[in-house]
């Protein structure tokens, strides 16, 4: 008889655990809804109204007609892709090295990679202005070394934007690459070597293919983040290389055209979501996130 009464008690206990889990999920959903989804719908609603507050597609029609959006979109896309490419080129070899570290060295590099995130991106960008300016540290060094053509114009143009954004976004690429590379089984490389493959061949046929998921994941993150970046282009870019986030800011602050800004934001969000969906489809993002093996 005692066991008969124990069963409902056990069930009740399990039930209350389940309730608790639902509660915690509900809290998270509520928080997300209030701080993220609600404003997002607000923006969406704003983009679909005209100056009088009535429903209209005027904002989007205007954007489609306007000659200003397309070059900015193109410029933004190019910048995001350039930054992603730079992150791959710089990040890949660095990640190979960093992924092989062990013990305290590995911990130290993890902290070092994450450290910039503790600093505001505004501060980090100002640091680059000091470094890259006409009389900045880098140019002075180049002049002193007698590099022909120095000092270079590294600020307030596309070069400056790409350098600054690469610096800011590189950690995302590094973390993604290191994570993937650490999971590559070293005996696979040994096996390939024992079968007669040269080091270069081992890299191209085994290491690189197995690290590609990390490259793809890192590229998606840096491209999407780069696409919407504001601070660095605003501070380090020139007047000719406006990015789309700056355009939104201009609409709000200078023109006080909230529906217009909202419409551009919706366009931006749509493009990013489409890019993400395409990446998920073509690169098999769910597969990328799964561990090797």
């Amino acid at each position: 008889m005692s066991s008969a009464s124990a069963i409902p008690a056990g069930l009740r206990a399990r039930r209350s655990v389940a309730d608790l889990q639902w509660l915690s999920v509900a809290v998270i959903l509520l928080f997300l809804g209030a701080t993220f989804l609600a404003p997002l719908f607000e923006v969406l609603a704003l983009s679909l109204t005209d100056a009088d507050g009535t429903f209209s597609l005027a904002q989007f029609r205007e954007l489609a007609d306007s000659s200003s959006l397309r070059p900015v979109l193109l410029q933004t896309t190019i910048t995001a892709l350039e930054v992603t490419l730079a992150c791959i080129v710089i990040g890949y070899p660095a990640a190979i090295y960093l992924s092989r570290l062990e013990g305290w060295k590995a911990s130290l590099t993890s902290v070092a990679i994450l450290f910039p995130f503790l600093t505001s991106s505004l501060v980090r960008t100002f640091v680059f202005i000091v470094l890259l300016g006409r009389n900045g540290v880098l140019n002075n060094a180049l002049v002193w070394l007698g590099v022909p053509g120095a000092p270079f114009k590294l600020l307030f143009n596309q070069t400056g934007v790409v350098i600054g954004m690469t610096y800011v976004l590189l950690p995302y690429m590094l973390l993604s690459l290191i994570g993937t590379m650490r999971k590559i089984d070293g005996t696979l490389l040994d096996a390939a070597r024992s079968m007669g493959a040269s080091r270069a061949r081992v890299f191209w046929t085994v290491y690189l293919p197995l690290s590609l998921p990390g490259v793809a994941a890192g590229a998606i993150i840096t491209t999407i983040l780069g696409f919407g970046y504001f601070v660095t282009p605003a501070l380090m870019g020139g007047p000719g290389e406006k990015m789309i986030a700056q355009m939104v800011e201009q609409r709000i602050v200078t023109l006080y055209d909230l529906p217009g800004a909202a419409a551009i934001s919706v366009v931006m969000l749509t493009i990013v979501l489409m890019a993400y969906a395409a990446a998920a489809r073509w690169l098999g993002l769910s597969r990328l996130m799964r561990p090797q093996g």
Binding site: D185, T187, L188, D190, A191, A192, V206, L210, Q292, G293
Partner: peptide, 10 residues
């Protein structure tokens, strides 16, 4: 060589 974990290329 047959490795302990087989080391097959995934």
């Amino acid at each position: 060589i047959v490795f302990q974990n087989y080391a097959l290329f995934p």
